[in-house]
Amino acid sequence: MNTTPITVPSPPEGQDLATVAMRFEVTPIPVTDFDRAKAFYQRLGWRLDIDVQFSEKVRAVQFTPPGSPASIQFGPPGPAPLQRLLLVVEDIEAARAELVDRGIDVGEIWNAVPGQPPKPGRDPEGRSYFSQAVFSDPDGNQWVLQEVTERIPGRV
Rank of each mutant, 00 (worst) to 15 (best):
14 G>S: 03
47 R>A: 12
142 Q>V: 15
28 P>R: 10
137 D>N: 00
47 R>T: 13
113 V>C: 00
15 Q>C: 13
40 F>T: 10
33 D>C: 07
30 P>S: 06
50 I>F: 06
28 P>T: 13
55 S>V: 09
27 T>G: 15
54 F>I: 08
48 L>P: 14
10 S>R: 14
109 I>M: 02
14 G>C: 01
138 P>T: 09
139 D>A: 00
20 V>L: 09
5 P>T: 00
120 P>G: 03
108 E>H: 10
113 V>Q: 06
20 V>H: 06
107 G>M: 05
60 A>C: 10
65 P>Y: 05
89 V>P: 01
115 G>F: 02
106 V>R: 04
23 R>P: 04
152 I>E: 06
120 P>I: 04
94 A>P: 02
18 A>R: 10
76 P>D: 07
149 T>V: 11
54 F>K: 12
110 W>E: 10
42 Q>R: 14
129 Y>C: 09
70 A>M: 05
132 Q>H: 12
58 V>Q: 13
74 F>T: 04
130 F>H: 15
22 M>T: 13
7 T>A: 08
123 D>V: 02
35 D>P: 07
88 V>D: 05
49 D>Y: 02
136 S>F: 00
93 E>Q: 08
140 G>M: 01
151 R>L: 15
43 R>N: 06
70 A>T: 15
60 A>D: 05
38 K>N: 08
52 V>P: 03
80 A>S: 15
64 T>V: 14
30 P>A: 12
142 Q>G: 08
19 T>D: 10
156 V>C: 02
108 E>R: 12
134 V>F: 08
85 L>G: 00
21 A>F: 09
61 V>A: 08
142 Q>W: 01
145 L>C: 07
106 V>M: 07
7 T>I: 12
92 I>E: 00
23 R>N: 14
122 R>T: 11
144 V>D: 04
35 D>E: 15
20 V>A: 11
34 F>M: 11
69 P>Y: 03
66 P>H: 02
156 V>M: 13
77 P>Y: 04
120 P>V: 07
112 A>K: 03
57 K>D: 09
109 I>V: 13
104 I>V: 15
106 V>L: 03
81 P>E: 05
78 G>V: 01
131 S>T: 10
79 P>M: 12
58 V>A: 14
76 P>R: 08
93 E>D: 13
94 A>I: 07
89 V>Y: 00
150 E>S: 05
89 V>A: 03
59 R>C: 06
